[in-house]
Design a protein around this nucleic acid. Structure first.
Length: 524
RNA sequence: GAGCGCGUAGCUCAGUCGGUAGAGCAACGCACUUUUAAUGCGUGGGUCGCAGGUUCGAUUCCUGCCGCGCUCACCA
């Protein structure tokens, strides 16, 4: 019998003894007067004398995180909502039955207490307990109290234990919630409405990525989990919803890394009658405000860098390549060096001759693709401070509007912060004829073997044919933004249940007897 | 998908240049009515990730597999 099983059975036995005291094993309710954080906030500053002068009666619930027995008395710490408060349980005050219950409690049990606040000899704010209410038993042992749960795999697989043991983890997810609510507040106040568009789509459009496939039985059709909500949100601007946003999951059937989870959360928003310049201003305001709402400051530390969301630089893609052009590759390029496949090929050759960068090159690909790859090879890693990188090649931007004076370039920008790409925005292409040509271009890319090239979406072109107002649209990766604002180096640290390979049967830590398998059809 | 690393008690970690393993916390028992990583005395707990190979003998060496992490590739 494993230790874990032994403890499980011992504690079940204690649960029976608790019932023998006439108490419910799993009571339904406990009414409290304060949360523990409320008590800490309100009474931490109060002195012993103040607490004695005005007796503060409280009812508090929480999980037992430490127990120190003293024979006929004892101290313990209750944890709730990220706060810890000491309780003092004395036989004289809680009575024989109450103390018998106290002795049957284990680390991890959930209890409620009634009592009054006081300060101990060592001046720790505590509850002098008059009643103990048993609320739920922890049948499995918690991790060690001093080091907590360190094992990364266990932390992700059993996030519930991680959250109990590691206060910082709790803080990250509270911050994540604030990120989302701050975004909603900001956009709502500017007249945006939140909408929900299909997660299951007959065509997976709006981004370049491989989708997950699923099947609807009644209609007998294959569907794709969306890789982006983009094309649906833009249909809404055709319909006259001028300012819309959606915060929800996208699914991409691609690799897992510290920056990628197959399902991730994206804010996408569209503003009619605006172009990408308007969105640049809006983005700077939005992200500075979100940072303030989450952390109280626009500054954050990520990967050893101090980053200020209140201080943005704007660089065009070509400017960025020029700015960060490596010395080993000779003198900096001129703007004219990006015009045409021949000139771009010459730049690539200079990089290759310098042997310092991983710069993929296929002369058959459009020059725009090569320039984008050059940006990634030369400049991207340097974009630590918040940067709006603007003006992208049309070849990699099938949904963006051309620059009026440079048809090979589009009005598009991406957001780079801390070396992460956290957003993508553009003046939306709303010319259905041009959109059709772009899709056709994508189709030929697909035929050349690009699995992630866009599919033709006839209904989307039909929607544009009814007239879509000029609009700017943007996507912001919520997970990565949260990483930056919480200093988390892995995306798994900002996703409560990141995708992991499931354990094989028998590898689980479960010690309970097998439960009868419920009929899945009758299981809500 | 590739390279590198890790997997020892419930948890955090030692260790074995090949002779089947230890500590702290947790657990169990006793004592203790202001402790706080409570304390004191005592007790129990491990197929050393899985499967093969080499060997008289493998947790240790080798191979394969599984899981996780990091880096790279793809991407947001």
């Amino acid at each position: 019998m494993s230790l874990e099983t032994k403890i499980y059975e011992l504690r079940q036995e204690k649960l029976k003894q608790i019932q023998a005291l006439g108490l419910q094993a799993y009571p339904h309710r406990f009414d409290f007067t304060h949360t523990i954080p409320q008590i800490l906030a309100e009474y931490t500053a109060k002195t012993t004398e103040e607490l004695e002068a005005n007796k503060v009666n409280v009812r508090v619930a929480g999980r037992l995180m430490s127990i120190r027995g003293q024979g006929k008395a004892g101290f313990a710490h209750l944890q709730q909502e990220g706060g810890r408060l000491q309780i003092y349980v004395k036989l004289d005050f809680v009575g024989e039955k109450g103390f018998a219950l106290y002795k049957l409690l284990d680390l991890g049990d959930i209890i409620g207490v009634k009592g009054y606040l006081f300060r101990t000899r060592t001046n720790e704010l505590s509850i002098h307990v008059e009643e103990i209410h048993f609320l739920a038993k922890d049948l499995l042992p918690l991790p060690e109290k001093w080091h907590g749960l360190q094992d990364v795999e266990l932390r992700y697989r059993q996030r519930y234990v991680d959250l109990v043991m590691n206060e910082d983890v709790r803080k990250v997810f509270v911050a994540r919630s604030k990120v989302v609510s701050a975004i909603r507040r900001f956009l709502d106040s500017r007249g945006f409405i939140e909408v929900e568009t299909p997660m299951m789509q007959p065509l997976a459009g709006g981004a370049a990525a491989r989708p997950f496939t699923t099947h609807h039985n009644t209609l007998d059709i294959d569907l794709y989990l969306r890789i982006a909500p983009e094309l649906y949100l833009k249909r809404l601007t055709v319909g006259g919803l001028d300012r819309v946003y959606e915060i929800n999951r996208n699914f991409r059937n691609e690799g897992i890394s510290t920056q990628h989870n197959p399902e991730f959360t994206m804010l996408e928003f569209y503003q009619a009658y605006a172009d990408y310049r308007v969105l640049m201003d809006l983005t700077e305001e939005l992200l500075a405000q979100v940072a303030r709402d989450v952390n109280g400051t626009t500054k954050t530390t990520f990967n050893g860098h101090e980053i200020d969301f209140g201080d943005w630089q704007r660089l065009s893609m070509r400017e960025a390549i020029i700015k960060y052009w490596p010395e080993a590759a000779g003198g900096k390029p001129q703007m004219s060096d990006f015009a045409g496949a021949k000139a771009v090929g010459a730049l690539v050759k200079r990089l290759h001759d310098a042997k310092i960068h991983n710069m993929p090159y296929d002369p058959d690909e459009p020059a725009g693709k090569t320039i984008a790859a050059m940006f990634e090879a030369v400049a991207e890693e340097h974009l630590i401070q918040p940067t709006i990188l603007y003006d992208f090649p049309v070849a990699i931007s099938p949904l963006s509007k051309n620059k009026p004076d440079e048809p090979d370039w589009v009005e598009r920008f991406e957001l780079f912060v801390g070396g992460l790409e956290i957003g993508n925005a553009f003046s939306e292409l709303n010319d259905p004829e041009e959109q059709r040509r772009r899709f056709e271009q994508q189709l030929s890319e697909k035929e050349r073997g690009d699995e992630e090239a866009h599919a033709m979406d006839e209904d989307y072109i039909r929607a544009l044919s009814y007239g879509m107002p000029p609009a700017g649209g943007e996507g912001v990766g919520i997970d990565r933004l949260t990483m930056l604002l919480t200093g988390s180096r892995s995306i798994r640290d900002v996703i409560l249940f990141p995708l992991l390979r499931p354990l094989q049967p028998g590898e689980t830590q479960a010690t309970e007897p097998e439960e009868a398998t419920a009929d899945p059809q009758n299981n809500k």
